[in-house]
Design a protein around this nucleic acid. Sequence first.
DNA 1: CCGGTGTTGTATAACGATGTAAAACACATC
DNA 2: GATGTGTTTTACATCGTTATACAACACCGG
Lengths: 339, 339
Amino acid sequence: MGISLKDVALRAGVSVKTVSNVVNEYRHVTPQTRQRVQRVIDELGYRPNLTARHLRKGRTGMIALALPELGNPYFAELADAVIEYAGALDYIVLLDHTNGRRDQEVLFAQGFRARVIDGLILSPIELENEDLLARESDAPLVLLGERQYDAPYDHIAIDNVAAARTAAAHLIELGRRRIAFLGARHGQARQTAHLRLQGWREVMAEAGRPTGEEYVAATDGYTREDGAQAMARLLDSGVRPDAVFCYNDLIAIGAMRTLTTRGLRVPEDVAVVGFDDIEDGRYCATTLTTVAPHKRAIARAATDALLERLALTGGQEIEPRRVQPGFALIPRESTTGRS
Amino acid sequence: MGISLKDVALRAGVSVKTVSNVVNEYRHVTPQTRQRVQRVIDELGYRPNLTARHLRKGRTGMIALALPELGNPYFAELADAVIEYAGALDYIVLLDHTNGRRDQEVLFAQGFRARVIDGLILSPIELENEDLLARESDAPLVLLGERQYDAPYDHIAIDNVAAARTAAAHLIELGRRRIAFLGARHGQARQTAHLRLQGWREVMAEAGRPTGEEYVAATDGYTREDGAQAMARLLDSGVRPDAVFCYNDLIAIGAMRTLTTRGLRVPEDVAVVGFDDIEDGRYCATTLTTVAPHKRAIARAATDALLERLALTGGQEIEPRRVQPGFALIPRESTTGRS
DNA sequence: CCGGTGTTGTATAACGATGTAAAACACATC
DNA sequence: GATGTGTTTTACATCGTTATACAACACCGG
């Protein structure tokens, strides 16, 4: 089939191991030998057989990335970042989605895909703490996203409260007074939406702005449609906000549509801030101000955490990491009027 | 690390190959031996090491599926179907996306990922015929989707003209007279949109309905936003259709929103038909009538075609296949008024 | 009891890479 | 020239599996 080390060795007149040494940039190879071997490698177009390498090394070189849904651009973009970063480190990423369902999340955590992947990055939605504690698989697991757990696993998530505070503060600075929050979910105190809601509440209270329930609109999901409906309900309830901070960009985009439909101008009448910095937001009719979690930093942190655990030999243990990648407020037309 | 054949063999008092024979359900093993070995397998929890198996077999057991974008639910759902079907056949699917860009499509066709995957299923958008003819990689390639090529590769796509005819005919049957088409793209006679447009045109002409350019709205992309804008342009141009057939469900959903916004009722004033049968369409306020390509059949056909080529030994050749999986019109509220 | 035929099990060699240990070589020091 | 020290290269075993070839055994008909 393909060209193997043996073929190269034969042609270059050296041993198989020497070729391997050249390929792996082993130190003690004379420049002459290295050059000669390298020439043959290029000539024959040798590419290492990953399967064989992985067999020998006892690893597959693959990691799984299990996200709630790929239909949400935030996750699609995040997946992209992980695939790119891990790819540069010669890891192959298996992309999976859980639909945000607990049973599927448990399945992945328990090691569906065991023996195929070396480790797993999981972004849970419904997974419970007890599920993690009951985990049996010994493949490294890194948790992603805002849900909080009390279990010994690496966890990568931005500081949602701080990020929400930044967004709210931005609106306050612009002189807005009645700032609504779109996208809270009922119950579920540990969930992300709660953290963002908390950040909003803190800043509102500090600035002496209303934080009543009438300014909070819950949504069932996180889609544009959910945002459009929530915005409509809010307006129908008689509240007249001059700004809305949305749980994510999709909701914000939906909200903007409703506002436009109702004859309200963005940002003159109502300023809008989203969260995620998905590409859509940059191409809206009115470009969307948003809080941008640093996706590449998240991807890097998650991958690094996983690979570091994979590099541990034998019985070594390291403390679970909590990493908080950065974020940035990106002001665009939906609050400033110009991009 | 894990339990190997050797461990099982030792414990069961048989040779490694015998255990392998049991695992692979080789015929000539006595029930006694089989039972004894099986018991040890269960006891130790032996799972075969895929890496080793693949090394020995000269295959990786992985196929790549390269789709334009995962943000479009149609592709996400299709990916799901392929992953599930191929998974049942013990193949692992590597999911990639090309953003519908020619350079990336060429990259995949040329064998980015070579030596990692056994074959590739590619759904091209911009790829040109010459790119295919210039292809050097010898890994099997199966083409997916409606773009037509004159190159020796398997091609899986539903009959788009027929499918579009079905949709148009449905609207005609309901007594609609001025039926617009949303989602044509400029130029590009070989593209999918052209086929669906053609089906629409044929049926309109046969029924003596108008097919003028004023009833055709082009879009830049295939998103909800594109649909909303195209619908708005159409209405602003003074045309008053009593039905629209949209290139896909996303465009249809966008169009429905514009209609609602403008005070037009679906389906009373304007009936709407989409294409793809994405899940969103089933949960719209007004559920969406759509043409449903049989995604599982497509996934099956593509995977089967690829695996069949993989099964070919040595110099064997088979003719490129053209498979046309089925489709079905699914009437819902957006045309019938009830679901 | 022989040879033929078919079944069941085993020993051994691959697949393509890397780790280990040691051989081969270079060079300086005494 | 013997010894030591460090560099460069090699032979061989190994990862866990399957393919090949053959040995061992059973059964049958003559």
